[in-house]
């Protein structure tokens, strides 16, 4: 499929003032759609992503949907960043949910290594088997006349001891050796050590891992990979280069209203508007921990449970501990109650 696109978007033509930059954007470009079958695409366009994520209970912004669509089409991992509680992990779950794939999750922490992330030999099992088949080994080497021959004979049997039977697969190996395509979530990658990050590079660019005793294992199905980061430390450039970057910010008013409505359908529109608007204002304050989406939902639930229909200073004060997790934050919110509720 070939189509020509002439870019005459009015916004692009306002390029005045910088002669080094081209004023015209009106070149004809040819768009080559990817050949079908070359890359198995789950989604056909961005709108479909939006719609299907919504069915899975996740209301995405256009930016999120575009990135998910591109990641699917180009089979690249997505590096998701953003403040705590904006739905980074939730996004991976939603994608897994609506694609009907299994979600394999790897939680990173300091000191995480290959043995816990990729595979480990089951030493105990290996040793026990060696003990049990001791006599069989005797049989094998009984044919040998010299020591060298005996060693040779045992070496022929080496595969019996370093086979998949004794390999305990951990999340990453599971993800690439699974028969069906999966969604792999590597959570809080910033908490792991830089060594681990380097080790991920092979996996993320070629979707293969090397196990010295067995050889290189390539993925049967390329998993849909999400990496999340809270920016505890900066991620290395090499890793970033292999990913598509997505920053999820606190949602806009309308988006947040839709999210709350989805998770808590009984809420009345009047209260919904009040809660979400108040929350947006609370987030502008200089708080230690800014309330996230799940807190908005909790707040809405508590207010309905208390039978409160409109936001009043009293209601705000009573339910504040759902929103603020530090005493100094509560004090600050109380001080600005008038601004938050829009009442002079």
């Amino acid at each position: 499929m070939r189509r020509n696109v002439y870019c005459e978007h009015p916004r692009f033509s306002v390029c005045y003032g910088i002669p080094a930059f081209p004023v015209s954007f009106c070149e004809s470009i040819t768009i080559q759609a990817p050949a079908q079958g070359e890359l198995p695409m789950e989604y056909t366009n961005v709108e479909e992503v939006l719609e299907r994520l919504k069915q899975a209970g996740y209301i995405a912004s256009h930016e999120i949907a575009t990135v998910v669509f591109l990641a699917d089409a180009t089979q690249k991992p997505v590096l998701v960043e953003g403040p705590a509680g904006v739905g980074k992990t939730e996004l991976a779950k939603a994608v897994a949910g609506n694609l009907g794939r299994e979600l394999i999750r790897l939680q990173c922490y300091e000191g995480l290594d290959e043995a816990k992330a990729l595979y480990e030999w089951e030493y105990a099992k290996q040793l026990l088997y060696t003990q049990i088949v001791k006599e069989k080994i005797q049989d094998v080497i009984s044919r040998a006349h010299t020591l060298a021959e005996a060693v040779e004979l045992i070496a022929e049997q080496e595969d019996a001891f370093f086979s998949e039977r004794f390999l305990q697969s951990r999340p990453l190996l599971k993800a690439i050796s699974s028969d069906k395509p999966v969604v792999l979530l590597i959570d809080e990658i910033d908490k792991s050590d830089p060594e681990f990050e380097a080790f991920l590079l092979e996996l993320l660019s070629d979707f293969q891992v090397t196990i010295p005793e067995i050889g290189t294992r390539a993925a049967r199905n390329v998993p849909f990979v999400f990496l999340t980061s809270n920016n505890y430390r900066d991620i290395s450039d090499a890793l970033k280069r292999r990913c598509i970057h997505l920053y999820i910010d606190y949602p806009e008013l309308n988006l947040e209203k839709r999210i709350v409505k989805l998770k808590h359908p009984e809420i009345e529109d009047q209260l919904l508007g009040n809660v979400v608007e108040a929350m947006a204002k609370i987030r502008t304050l200089d708080l230690k921990k800014k309330p996230c989406i799940s807190e908005t939902i909790d707040w809405a639930r508590s207010l309905t449970a208390l039978g409160i229909n409109g936001m009043t200073p009293e209601a705000l004060k009573e339910t504040l501990n759902v929103v603020c997790k530090y005493r100094s934050d509560s004090e600050l919110v109380k001080k600005h109650a008038a601004m938050i509720l829009d009442r002079p």
Binding site: V5, C7, I31, Q32, P34, V46, E63, L70, A73, H245
Partner: peptide, 19 residues
């Protein structure tokens, strides 16, 4: 990736560049 989206839609064009 620009081939896969509609580059005239500026939000998407910008998203691709930014990502």
């Amino acid at each position: 990736q620009l081939k896969l989206i509609d580059p005239v839609n500026e939000t998407r064009f910008r998203t691709v560049l930014r990502a």
